[in-house]
Every structure is written in structure tokens, then in C-alpha cells.
Simulated assay, not measured.
Amino acid sequence: MSTGEKLLQALLIIAIFFAVIAIILAATSRLHSRVGEIIQSAAFVLPASLLIGVGLLYPAINSIYLSFKDRYSNHFVGFDNYKTIFTDADLLRVLANTAVWVVVTPIVATAIGLVYAVLVDHARFEKTAKALIFLPMAISLVGASLIWKFVYDDRIGILNATTDALGLGRHHWLINSPWNTFWLIIILIWVQAGFAMTVLSASIKAIPNDIVEAARLDGVGGWRMFRYITVPSIRPTIIVVLTTITITTLKAFDIVRQTTGGNYKTSVLSYEYYRQSFQSANWGLGSALAVLIFVLVLPVVIYNIRQMRQLEAR
């Protein structure tokens, strides 16, 4: 398909969208009663609900269904796929890698963002400093992975050039396990630290001046101000940032795909799902991995929503 055909197709889709909206508005514009308002609301909500059902609910239900079937989705095998996940040596390594990602990335990224936000708060160069750490957020995970892949490159990588100049020799950063997992985690920390800094900085600036001034009058400053005033005041925001980065970490497919391709014992759940489903055509095991990711993400999402509601209520 040529570029012109793609552009024409995009314009056609946009035209259809506006035509549907116009039809809904024309059909419901004269409905002024209570029942009419309900009909008008339903006219807008139902198409969106239908798309959510087709795009989200049906795939989720179908994945759960396929997770109980064999490799080719021909026969039911019960919980065999889930048993494989927790007994197969390679998949246990995948679970261990995922656990390391989930523990290290949110904590380190949030800590860096918090410390950075506190250090540059009210500084003369605050805007420039924040812009520098936020810049990686403007890069997709694929782009960030490609950048760091060159950094870690055995021959032309800047990291090996630095260690070689310091007399520490050259190293295969992305090959040697288990340290290669931590080198990949650095990529996501580099991207997410800017997000953590931005959100936490806004929360720090929202701390009432009365509290800060009262603490200073009592002789509180430096580390004690950070520990007893800043952190307790922004605790709900810290939790929201931690949970949000945790959800992102559980979906860290792009980084593994672009750097190691899941080789050298670096695979994680999201990449293993892709490998089993689309490379090995093992739809049963792939679906079970997808369901496991959903089960791990769901409680974090629920907790995150509760924390955000508490923030809005304050």
C-alpha cells in the first residue's frame, strides 16, 4: 500500500468518525426530556462500550479460555500450562527476572526522582535541571533501548571505551548473566526517573508553606526536613508513582526485545508471552502467561486507583 493510499484510508476513517458523531447528534438533538437525555447519553456511550468489549474484554476472556487448552488449542489440559510456568526451569528463570525488575525498577526510579526533585526545588536552574532528567520520557522505550544498546556495545560502546581507558578492560555487558538483567533495568530507570521527578516535584510544591515554616522555626532542616516533613506529606503521591512504574515494569517488552531478544537468560513475562505465542505458536502456554501478567497487574491497578481517589479527595 502506497503512502497516498494510506493517507486516503486515514482520511476516510476520520470522515466516518465525524459522520457517526453527526448522525448521533442529529438523531438526539430534539430529545429534551429526561428519557431523551438518557437516550442521548446511551447513543454516545454504547459505541465506546462496544469498542472496549471488542478490543479489551473479548481478548481477555479468550486468553483465559485458551490458557486451559493445549499447544494448538485443540484439547483442554486443565491447569497444565500454569503448572509448566511454575515448574519449567527456563520459565522459573523468567519469573525470577520479572521479580527483580518489579522490585528494583520502581524503588530506584522513584528514589532518584524524589531526591532529584528535592535537590533542584527552588534552585535558579530548576527548569533546566528538570528538563534534562525529563528528556528520556520523550523517547519511546524502543528508542531508549537502541541508544543504550550502543552504550553497551562490545566494540564501539561508550561504556567499554570508558572502562578500557580506566584500565578495567572490556566486558560483554548484555551477555553475562545475571548482571545483564541489571544493565537492562538501568534503561527503564533512566526513562522512568523523569516521570517520578515530575509528579513528586509537583507534590512537593503543594506542601503548605505553613507546615514548612513551622518546621524551620522548630529548628528542623536538611535531612530531618526531608524525613519528617517532605516524605510524610507526599506519601500518597510516592505510592502512586511506585505503583504506576510497577505496572510499566510488568510490561517491559520493548527493552528486552530490542537489546537481547530474550537471550542470555534475560527474558521476562511480557517477552516470554510474545515468544511462546508468536514465535513458538504455543497458544496455550502463551495465553497462560498473559493471564498471569493480568493477575499480577490487577491488584496494583486497583490499589493505584484507590490512592488516586484519596489524592483527589484531599
Score class of each variant (00 low, 15 high):
110 T>K: 03
17 F>M: 07
143 G>A: 03
9 Q>T: 09
247 I>Y: 02
127 K>L: 08
233 S>R: 02
230 T>V: 10
294 F>M: 15
208 P>T: 00
71 R>C: 02
129 A>N: 05
130 K>E: 12
127 K>M: 09
117 A>H: 01
16 I>G: 04
53 G>Y: 01
130 K>D: 09
235 R>E: 03
111 A>Y: 00
14 I>D: 01
232 P>D: 02
225 M>I: 03
21 I>A: 14
238 I>R: 06
312 E>F: 00
54 V>N: 01
313 A>T: 14
248 T>Q: 14
238 I>S: 08
280 S>N: 14
109 A>H: 03
197 M>Y: 01
210 D>H: 11
277 S>T: 15
125 F>N: 12
115 V>K: 02
76 F>N: 08
11 L>N: 05
257 R>V: 00
48 A>C: 10
89 A>S: 15
66 L>E: 07
67 S>P: 04
109 A>S: 14
93 R>E: 12
198 T>D: 06
263 N>A: 15
171 H>I: 09
155 R>T: 14
167 G>V: 07
264 Y>I: 01
73 S>L: 06
48 A>E: 05
180 N>E: 04
34 R>W: 07
291 V>S: 06
313 A>P: 08
83 K>S: 12
107 I>D: 02
163 T>H: 09
37 E>I: 02
74 N>F: 12
65 Y>P: 00
44 F>P: 00
121 D>Q: 13
20 V>A: 13
9 Q>W: 10
307 Q>F: 02
101 W>D: 07
302 I>S: 10
225 M>N: 05
113 G>Y: 01
104 V>M: 11
41 S>F: 13
227 R>V: 13
71 R>M: 09
91 L>G: 06
301 V>I: 11
308 M>I: 15
7 L>A: 14
201 S>M: 12
100 V>C: 12
69 K>Q: 11
216 R>A: 04
141 L>D: 08
221 G>D: 11
263 N>L: 14
